[in-house]
Structure formats: C-alpha cells, structure tokens
Design a protein around this nucleic acid. Sequence first.
DNA 1: TTACAAACCAAGCGCTTGCTTGGTATTGTC
DNA 2: GACAATACCAAGCAAGCGCTTGGTTTGTAA
Lengths: 207, 207
Amino acid sequence: MNQDSILRSLIAENLVSDPASARGRLLHEAARLFRDKGYERTTVRDLAAAVGIQSGSLFHHFRTKEDILKAVMVETIRLNTALMQAAMEAATTHRDKLQALIRAELESINGQTGEAMAVLVFEWRSLSEASQAYVLELRDIYEQLWLDVLDALRKDGVLAAEPFVVRRLLTGALSWTVTWYRPDGGLTLDDLTEQVVAMMGLTRAEN
Amino acid sequence: MNQDSILRSLIAENLVSDPASARGRLLHEAARLFRDKGYERTTVRDLAAAVGIQSGSLFHHFRTKEDILKAVMVETIRLNTALMQAAMEAATTHRDKLQALIRAELESINGQTGEAMAVLVFEWRSLSEASQAYVLELRDIYEQLWLDVLDALRKDGVLAAEPFVVRRLLTGALSWTVTWYRPDGGLTLDDLTEQVVAMMGLTRAEN
DNA sequence: TTACAAACCAAGCGCTTGCTTGGTATTGTC
DNA sequence: GACAATACCAAGCAAGCGCTTGGTTTGTAA
C-alpha cells in the first residue's frame, strides 16, 4: 500500500476528511494558520477568510473553534499511524524497521502533513482536557509500534539505553526538526534519517 | 564557581533580576503562568493577581505584556549560558564535557529554571520579531559551546554524525523532556543524562 | 415545479482583552 | 519633617474576541 491508497481508504472509512471537500480544505488552512500564528492568535475571522466565507458560517461546519483544532489533531494522528504501520511492515530487520519509523516520522513532520504535525506538538495545551484524553488514546497505538521495535533492538544488544526513554528522546529530537529543517537546505530527509541513525551509533555495517 | 555564586554575580551586573525583588518575583510567577496556561491564555489580570497587585499596576514595571515575556526569556538565557560555561569548564575530556553540557541543560530544563525554559521553547512565536532577533543573538553564544565540544568528539572518531545536526537533535530531545520527565518517577537527572549518553553509543568504557 | 435541507451571509451581542488615566499611599533622602 | 520619587489602586476605555441570530442562496431529488 502506497501513501495515496492509505489516505484513500481512510477517507472511505470516514476517519479523515477528503482534502478536496469543504471540511478538508478548512482543516488544511486551519493547520497552516495554527502553525504560523498559533491557535490563540488565529481568529475565527482568519479561518473563515482563508476559505472565503464569513466567520459565522464556520459554525455551520464546526460547533466551536476548539473543535477545529481537535479535528486537525485527530485526523493527523489517524493518518500518520496508518502510514507508520505500513512503513514498518515493509522493512525486515529490526534495525531497518527503526530506520523506517524514523524516516516515516520525519516525513510526517516535514512533508505534506507537516503543518498539522507542528500543531499537534505546539498547540497541545490549547485543547480542552477531554479532547486531550481522546487524542492521547489514539497516540498510544502509534507509540506501541516504536516500543516494540526498540525492545527488539535492546534484546539484540544493539541499543544500550532504555527503550521507553529512547522513544521519548527521539520524539523530541524528531519533532524539533520542524523548527530548523528545510528540504532545500542541502540535506534530504534520507540524509537526515541517516544522521539520526548515526547519532545512535547504529551504522549499517555493524548490524 | 557554584550555581549560587554565578546567580549572584549576574544579579550584581544587573543581567538578571534578584528573585527576591518585586521584578524578580513577577518574572518568576509569569514564567509559571506562561508555562501552565500559555502566554496568550494568561491575562495581565492573572499576572497581577499572582503577585498581589492590580492589573494596571503591572504597567508601572513593564511597558507591555510582551516585555514581560521577553524579560523572562532574556534573563533565562543569560543565566543558563553562564551555568553551562561553568559546568563545561569543570570537565576535562571531550566526552565528559559533553556529558556535563547534557547534564546542565537537563538541569536547566527540569530544575529551578524549568518553568522559564519551557516558556523559551513553547512560547517563542508569541515574541515580536524584533525581540526574537535579540534573543537569538544571545542564544548563539550558548550554542557555540556545544558545537565546539561536538566538533572535538567528531575528530576523535567517537561521533559518527554531523555536529550541527547532532546539536539540533539533542536540543529537541532534551527540551522535550519537560513534557514527560518527573524527578519523582524513579529516574534521577544523572540517570537520564546517562541514558542520553548511552543512546548515543558513548559508553564510559570505550572512551 | 415544488419541496426541503445544506451552505452561507450580514449584523451584531455580550464579554474579555491589553492598556490608560488620575489620583493616593509608601518609601528613601537630606 | 519636607519633598520627591517610587509603587500602587480604582475605574474604565477602545478594540477584538467567539459565537448567535434571522434570513437568503444554492444544490438535490421527486
């Protein structure tokens, strides 16, 4: 399954919005605005203007402004969990599975869904507690993928640190790339992936 | 120089506010509120109430609300640059210098100045562009400390990845600890430091 | 053509926001 | 003890906020 067919099947199951639909376009613009200006600094008038309607008309599609933020986050997690799963299943060795996960997460942070992923990282506190709990549940599925691979590497004797700590350190390291990585800066995503693997001392030759 | 004497000399030079002064107490409360609720969600009334004065009286001490945010960030960077420098100079080998830097940064993120450091990471966009530029200048001094040590390790053949990439990955990994690390969770800051070093494959025996 | 719902507009309400104003205590100095 | 300077209060203004309301246009299907 390639990325496009994964997206299409999620749309068919109504788990994410079609980017071509009114709702999908709004969520895309919202992600962009929330990333650029922050959730609080983005007004419903900004959101409405971005899709060419009046501010009041937004509330025909979403009950509250926060619902829009929640939808951005939920749909992003759903899509990326599916993409991760596919990327990992395509690899064979534990080391390659880890590299695939790193590569996939870098892609989700710096590629098409980058705006939404940045929102997920930096606008977390703007979600109500109830919504936070819901999103956290979705994230657990996603996190288990990582822990399984890191546990295996640990048992192989390739990884010296605790898997759950490593995952959290990696979460930070990879999320943070959104603040500095630019695809046109002479470093491809593949290069960056290799740098991460190299920093961990997991060079290809050894394993 | 221990931490306390560093703080005192910075106060004497008027580079950071005395925590006991009115200004210092306000900045401390501001850091806490900004971290807990975010800059935008924190009102000047919240800030004033936290130090027991009326909202209007704030503007006797600071010209604008944003000036308070800027002051929190500037003073935090000044203090931590000094702490880092001291921590690093106390170590001898390159590996130990790196470990000292990691330990110091974890301390600044999760210790006394943790609230202010979290603000520095997560409220960056709330600063005006002019203030951002000023804070960035201060940060460059700080960053050079890291790059010098990482360059040395690279030349020693102990580090396989590019120093400037590693620094950015570490920035993310260490900053992110503020979202999950709890000192009472069975993992000390020393433990955590060792985990970071272990993740990088720099175990004590080898070097 | 008719019927009806979904999508949208124009206007604005009620509230909160950062900040200002004019005046009053409090503190330090000679 | 006179006199500033500093620190603060009480009140409120202008602007911007999320969201509501009542009504109109557009799409769809019989």
